[in-house]
């Protein structure tokens, strides 16, 4: 899992059925001091936790699929926590 900030939204009307009603964001990975690291990526938000500008924790690879209730979706990254604060 990594920390990231939502910097954009991806709009797609035609998508795989399993992803209907799931928003997709562009996320900039950040360090705990809020400095950008690595390049931005597309992250799905199965639980509707995030909005633009929010700091989040996202999970990648096989485990991103597990963030969905069905456990059967073609995603590579998912939002799993909305960060209140990093202390």
């Amino acid at each position: 899992m990594k920390l990231g900030v939502v910097i954009g939204v991806v709009w797609a009307s035609r998508k795989v059925e399993a992803l209907d009603a799931c928003r997709m964001y562009i996320v900039q990975p950040v360090s705990s001091e809020n400095n950008p690291v690595e390049s931005p990526l597309v992250v799905a938000d199965p639980k509707g936790l995030a909005a633009s500008g929010d700091k989040i924790v996202y999970v990648t690879s096989t485990d991103a699929v597990e963030a969905f209730d069905s456990g059967f979706v073609p995603v590579n990254a998912s939002v799993i926590e909305l960060v209140d604060v990093v202390v």
């Binding site: 899992m1 920390l3 705990s32 639980k47 936790l49 924790v57 597990e66 963030a67 799993i80 926590e81 909305l82 960060v83 209140d84 604060v85 990093v86 202390v87």
Partner: peptide, 22 residues
């Protein structure tokens, strides 16, 4: 471990678990 992440809105699997920045 350098910091601790505090959050209220999270995936059910994370409820009650402690999350750190490493």
């Amino acid at each position: 471990i350098i910091r601790k992440v505090i959050s209220t809105e999270k995936h059910d699997a994370y409820k009650g678990r402690i999350v750190f920045v490493v």
